[in-house]
């Protein structure tokens, strides 16, 4: 096993002693097969115990190790050193407040995730004794890619609209809303539209497309959002041409059969 000396320049923020973040360099002897997370763990174990960052699975599943590596947001457990130069800059995700070192505050995202009602809203819930919902493999294929999100926040880090407009619901949450909207078991599109089809929802997106380029799970949030825009436009014209189909409160929970 060959060893390679790598310089890791890590953005540090220690709120008890610093009012703004500063870079700190570490020289790390790295193994050929290491990922950036291994190098961070080496620092934590051998060089500086105070370095803070999040991780859990070390296998691109939990989504907690998202950070910006040489300007690109990625999972540090999937960022192989053999693909990176000898000098690596590691920063916390952009567009989120930095809590400490590489850890960011995710409260805003959590609130937005909840706001899109990311769960099945069936018109006629199947009673437990009647068994499960049935779904064909063709119906599964329609939403499966959008269900692969692991909430790593790489897409939020690279989205200029999320950075510049506080209210924007953002790529992952909107992709998840789309994932349920196109699920054959779900009729909740109208129940989600107040948040999703609003000025701070899909219409805030200008299709920069960066979210889809960086997503480690190939979720393609940009595609999800554009498809939701089209569906929502069709809804708008349906409401215009057939206003009776919708209950007056504008709360269209009951718009039967309209959510496909």
């Amino acid at each position: 096993m060959s060893e390679r000396q790598i310089t890791l320049e890590v953005l540090r923020y220690r709120p008890e002693s610093e009012s703004e973040p500063v870079f700190q360099s570490y020289s790390v002897p790295c193994q050929e097969e290491w990922v950036v997370l291994d190098a961070l763990n080496y620092i934590k174990d051998n060089l500086d115990r105070t370095l803070s960052y999040r991780w859990s699975c070390h296998m691109a599943v939990c989504g907690s190790c998202g950070m910006v590596i040489n300007d690109n947001p990625m999972l540090s457990c999937k960022a192989f050193l053999r693909d990176l130069p000898d000098h690596i800059r590691v920063e916390p995700l952009h567009n989120f407040p930095i809590e400490r070192d590489l850890m960011v505050e995710l409260d805003d995202f959590m609130d937005k995730l909840k706001s899109v009602k990311p769960y099945l809203i069936p018109d006629q819930p199947v009673a437990e004794e009647d068994g499960t919902y049935r779904q064909s493999s063709a119906q599964l294929k329609k939403y499966k890619p959008f269900a692969m999100c692991i909430n790593c926040m790489a897409c939020y880090s690279v989205c200029p609209q999320y950075g510049l407009n506080e209210g924007f619901v953002g790529p992952a949450a909107l992709a998840l809303a789309h994932r349920y909207n196109v699920d054959s078991r779900d009729q909740g599109r109208r129940a989600r539209e107040d948040v999703v089809a609003s000025n701070t929802g899909i219409w805030e997106c200008t299709f920069v497309g960066a979210c889809s380029e960086v997503c480690p799970k190939n979720v393609d949030p940009a595609a999800a959002i554009q498809q939701t825009k089209i569906a929502s436009t069709v809804d708008y014209f349906k409401d215009l041409l057939m206003p009776g189909k919708r209950d007056k409160s504008g709360n269209a929970k009951q718009a039967a059969g309209d959510g496909a």
């Binding site: 709120p15 008890e16 009012s19 703004e20 973040p21 952009h94 407040p97 930095i98 950075g163 960066a210």
Partner: peptide, 17 residues
């Protein structure tokens, strides 16, 4: 303890990448 730090976004953000 200082509050969580919010990095400012410069007007030239679009030249970064």
């Amino acid at each position: 303890t200082n509050p969580p730090y919010i990095r400012p976004i410069p007007a030239s953000w679009w030249l970064r990448q």
